[in-house]
Amino acid sequence: MTTLAVDRPLVPTRRVGPLTGLRHTLTLAWRSLVQIKHNPMELLDLSIQPVMFVLLFTYVFGGAISGSPGEYLTFALPGIIVQNAFFATMTTGFGLNTDLTKGVFDRLRSLPIARWAPLAGRILADTVKQAWSVTLLVGVGMILGFRLENGLPGLVGAFALLLAFSLAASWISVLVGVLVNEPEKVQIFGFTVIFPLTFTSNAFVPTGTMPGWLQAWVAVNPVTVLADALRGLLIGGPVAGPVLRSLIWGAVIAAIFAPLALRAFKRRV
């Protein structure tokens, strides 16, 4: 152990430059992604679950709702993608809370790194995970017969919109992750809020037979709005309106939850 000596040349700097902060963010994002390697369950979560949803919905509900699995897939895949995206945002809060409760955050905060890097690194890593499951969903959908009517531009547009919206929605997840005292509570929150939210939309079924009051909510539900935007982009139909409404929803969510989350975050760490 001759290597413990102090030899760091020391002219301490006053603060972190933005480029250095970006490098910290990338390192921390790497760390979140490497975790997957040692936790195969997480990979299952990211991969098998979305695929299973596509298969179940298509072959169980397909015939009853749309007359055939193929037709239903065309209708429902955008909705399934949206639902998956909402659930995926919970990863951020879960991971954040794990770091807070396990003390990893304390270690990070004792290091001379950008204050925002741990949060930014996590969000970046979760965006990569999100992109992976969307790719997987579209891929499986196409194998089962889903057709991209608007080609690559539509697909790229859908991707961009979804990731932008997820980024906004992940502030909700950050807020929950900072407020609760154990990671499991983030999941419980996720299930109790996201299930009703995604089912009271037009993600999985045409809404014509729902009671009027429910239809009123369904029409403004961000899940509906986003699902419509993805349908427009992937399989054709109106694009501008739903995309605009999705962006507005994203902006509203970010405007409300980002400040709340950051305030709670600063208070806790």
């Binding site: 020391l10 301490p12 700097t13 006053r14 603060r15 001379p112």
Partner: peptide
Amino acid sequence: HRVRQLIG
């Protein structure tokens, strides 16, 4: 930030 550069 400077303190953090000195400590473990």
